[in-house]
């Protein structure tokens, strides 16, 4: 994983830009994409407990399972059930999109062993090659993501995005609602 700030900002940027071109994706769905990007980092609970495994009512599970697509998807679907029915499809798409972006970015992390953990479990146990772009602790990814996110936020808020009505900077939800 890269640091959570980079994950969250990347999801914000991608979801915001997507909301400019995807008619059913509104501004209110961007925080859901961000939440989806945060979800796999529940695995960081291992840093808090000091162990990669935790036992609850006699059942032992790995914190690292929380960064796999299978477990995260189950948790996101559970969350989506709590969302108003009319919003569920888009909410699920935004959440899964954020998580997918998180997992994709995790394959960019430098790993001395050359392979990433089996993030795609239970689809496959394959440990795909790591692409060795940055470390989880590298500072530069967030230093790149932050100004890009600010720029996208500014463009979005000022109504400067392609197709946006520049005379209505506080664009309403209705023009992009599903």
């Amino acid at each position: 994983m890269s640091d959570l700030l980079t994950h969250a900002l990347a999801a914000f940027v991608v979801a915001t830009v997507a909301s400019w071109v995807v008619p059913w994706l509104a501004r209110r769905h961007v925080p859901l994409a961000t939440a989806g990007a945060v979800a796999p980092d529940l695995a960081k609970g291992a840093f808090v407990t000091g162990d990669t495994q935790a036992t609850v009512v006699g059942v032992t599970g790995s914190w690292y399972a929380l960064q796999t697509v299978g477990v995260v998807t189950c948790l996101l679907v559970a969350g989506v059930v709590l969302v108003e029915r009319a919003e569920r499809r888009v909410a699920l798409a935004a959440l899964l999109g954020g998580t997918g972006l998180h997992v994709a970015m995790d394959y960019l992390v430098i790993r001395a062993g050359g392979v990433a953990p089996p993030y795609l479990y239970p689809l496959t146990w394959a440990e795909l090659p790591s692409l060795d772009v940055y470390l989880s602790s590298s500072i530069w990814p967030s230093l790149v993501a932050l100004p890009v996110a600010v720029l996208v936020w500014y463009v979005d808020r000022r109504g400067l995005a392609p197709g946006a009505d520049s005379t209505a900077p506080d664009r309403t939800d209705g023009d992009r609602a599903n």
Partner: peptide, 9 residues
């Protein structure tokens, strides 16, 4: 989710 986590472990 719990079952998958246990199976993964």
């Amino acid at each position: 989710a719990g079952w998958l986590a246990v199976d993964y472990t």
